[in-house]
């Protein structure tokens, strides 16, 4: 039972990171941007939030909780938004090929992130734990977390897990019920139509991409502060989660609310190698880690096949995904 609880909590924490990043990618894709730069954005935002928080904790005798939270959250959001801006300049204004652009941002983010780590701690691969930040981001909900097994399973996570759940619900309402959400969806489906009814296609694309990328940045921050316990290591696997988040978007067929179960499921499958053999008392799994970690991708492929054979257009990617928009084309 204890093994299961540990496995479950790992799945939820991973789910938190995956779902906020995937939610960011969904917003990108709804604006017609196939942003493959998510891994890079997560990596760079993670390291930036670590550096910002570390600087503050080092500079002040008694760090304030609120300042640590704001620094970590805002620095990651801002990093994401800036990369989103960069992406939009190339994808919207210069109409570059989005695949190439996304992949270069993925490479740039990881590379630049590693460079920044070098700057702050020359030569080493692991960096000290930030004690205050770790306490703040892994506190669990007061009182509720002491409810025995239930508390351990559902209420013993850092507050960002619950913030992310709220963001997902808000995102669902945003797309389903609000006018701006409807307008944004139309941009990804058919920018020409959106243009014809008077929507500013470029502005929607810029803003949605910046918001989407900043959410992905938040995912990187959660990895560092919550999952890694406010420590940094250049050997960590943020990028791997970035690619998983992109696959997850397909898995939930572009519906943020399905991330609530889809993302923890991915986390569950990802961590299966560490706990499943133990729970079933099977030995000899040692060499299979990577193969089992493939499960989320396999599931995604299966979902992709099922979705495309069902021919329900609602489950298909936005129709203009990845295509640049020109107005006066004859």
């Amino acid at each position: 039972m204890d093994t299961f609880i540990t496995w479950f909590t790992f799945a939820v924490v991973y789910g938190t990171i995956l779902s906020i990043s995937a939610c960011g990618e969904i917003i990108n894709e709804k604006a017609g941007h196939l942003n493959l730069g998510i891994p890079g954005i997560m990596y760079l935002s993670g390291v930036v939030s670590y550096i910002a928080t570390k600087a503050y904790e080092g500079a002040v005798e008694e760090p304030l909780v609120i300042v640590i939270i704001l620094l970590a959250v805002l620095s990651s959001l801002l990093t994401g938004a800036l990369i989103g801006l960069l992406y939009s300049v190339f994808a919207v204004t210069f109409r570059c090929n989005q695949n190439v652009l996304g992949l270069s941002i993925a490479a740039f983010g990881v590379g630049f992130g590693k460079f920044l780590s070098l700057v702050i701690g020359a030569g080493s691969t692991t960096y000290p734990k930030l004690a205050h930040a770790n306490d703040i981001f892994n506190a669990g909900l007061p009182f509720l977390k002491d409810l025995g097994v239930v508390g351990d399973l559902f209420f013993n996570y850092g507050f960002m897990t619950y913030v992310v759940i709220i963001i997902l619900v808000v995102a669902m309402f945003f797309f389903r019920r609000t006018r701006i959400g409807l307008n944004l969806r139309s941009i990804g489906e058919s920018p020409a139509t959106a243009d014809a009814v008077g929507l500013n296609v470029s502005r929607y694309k810029y803003i949605a991409t910046m918001i989407g990328c900043s959410l992905a940045g938040l995912g990187g921050m959660i990895y560092v502060m919550q999952f890694s316990g406010a420590s940094w290591s250049t050997n960590n696997s943020i990028e791997a989660l970035g690619w998983l988040a992109v696959a997850l978007v397909i898995f939930v067929s572009w519906k943020p609310i399905h991330l609530l179960w889809g993302a923890p499921l991915f986390g569950f499958l990802f961590w299966a190698y560490a706990y499943l053999p133990n729970m079933l008392s099977i030995n000899g799994f040692t060499g299979m880690t990577q193969i089992i970690q493939m499960l989320p991708y396999l599931v995604t492929i299966v979902v992709l096949i099922i979705n495309s054979s069902r021919k329900k257009k609602e489950n298909q990617p936005p129709a203009s995904l990845g295509l640049p928009y020109f107005r006066e084309e004859r």
């Binding site: 006018r179 409807l182 307008n183 489906e189 929507l199 609602e314």
Partner: peptide, 14 residues
């Protein structure tokens, strides 16, 4: 028109 939208969503778009 946006294919995946309903008639009324298309009508109020923008």
């Amino acid at each position: 028109l946006i294919e995946v939208f309903s008639a009324s969503d298309n009508i109020i778009l923008g």
